Amino acid sequence: MDISNSVLILVAAFGGLIIFFVFLYFVPVNLWITAIFSNVKVGLLELVGMRIRKVPPGVIVNSLITATKAGLNLTTNDLETHFLAGGNVPNVIRALISADKANISLSFKQATAIDLAGRDVFEAVQISVNPKVINTPNVAAVAADGIQLIAKARVTVRANIAQLVGGAGEETILARVGEGIVTSIGSAQNHKSVLENPDKISKLVLERGLDAGTAFEILSIDIADIDVGSNIGAKLQIDQATADLKVAEARAEERRAMAVALEQEMKAKNVEMRAKVTEAESEVPKAIADAFRTGNLGVMDYYKMENVKSDTSMRDSIAKSDENKSSDRSRGNDKNK
């Protein structure tokens, strides 16, 4: 009996401990006491309800204590609602306190909206107090004289609290500043004027109102460095000249091909005409024979015709030999010279 009683006592004690820890888990008495001593009104039932809704009471109570000590008028429902919506409650409280100390108009509704939009509201308040410097990448642009300039700028921005929800980010600022630099350099008559007065680029870019629709306010744009690049105009002219040369060569090749084709065509026509002449000459003996038969040509007439042909052939051969001798003489004279 004594052993069974001891076991029952141990089981009861163990069960009591479990119940006690479960009670402390669902009823965080330490947080309740801390809230009371911090002049923050939080009921035990509210803390139990937070546990049931899977809201960490420590985050809500500690954030509420911090806000109350800073003079902010918030309730547990406000903080709990923001937490359940997926917000970062401590970050929002820090942002509200920083904005209040810096005399920046920022309501709890604005802060929670900015936080739920995915932006770091505390960082935004810090940028509003301490402006941020954004370094642009190298921006290459070509002046009117064809010389390339490579510029690098530093953009000083301040967070625009009213535009943080729905406003564009740093990438848009960098893109617009780069576009403004390209436009400013491109409108310059020559690269020397840009190198002499780089502040003109800053003025022209600032006048364009590049921060419209963004989450930042551009305070200044400073040209940090300008380097002279390559002569783009000369390269373009060289490329154009090369292209024109290739076009001219293609047209010349086309004309040459047409000339070769025409030459081959003329050769074919020459062969064709020679064939016709040969064909016509083959008809001459037939005509002579026919003339003999009909009596239109006598024997003496035939011999006279042959003598004329022989005489003509002899004269042609003599003329060709004279031409060859004269050409040989001219070649010899050229060699002697």
Rank of each mutant, 00 (worst) to 15 (best):
D100A: 15
T68G: 10
K337W: 07
V182Y: 00
N39K: 15
G295Q: 13
E272P: 03
I185F: 01
R154C: 00
K309N: 11
D311H: 14
D316E: 14
L210N: 05
A280N: 10
S4V: 14
T312F: 14
L84D: 03
E265G: 08
P90E: 13
Q189M: 07
V22E: 14
I147F: 05
I36W: 02
N270E: 15
A70H: 02
V89W: 01
R315L: 13
D334G: 11
I223A: 04
R53W: 02
I104Y: 15
A287N: 08
N39F: 02
T34N: 09
S193W: 05
D225S: 14
V277E: 08
M1F: 00
A35R: 01
S220H: 09
A124E: 12
E323H: 10
G87P: 05
V194E: 04
P131S: 06
L210H: 00
Q148V: 02
T294I: 07
D2I: 05
A287I: 06
I9D: 13
G16E: 03
L10H: 06
M300P: 00
I9L: 08
Q163Y: 03
T75I: 07
F292L: 15
E265C: 09
I201H: 03
V42C: 04
V139F: 00
S4R: 09
R158S: 15
E253V: 00
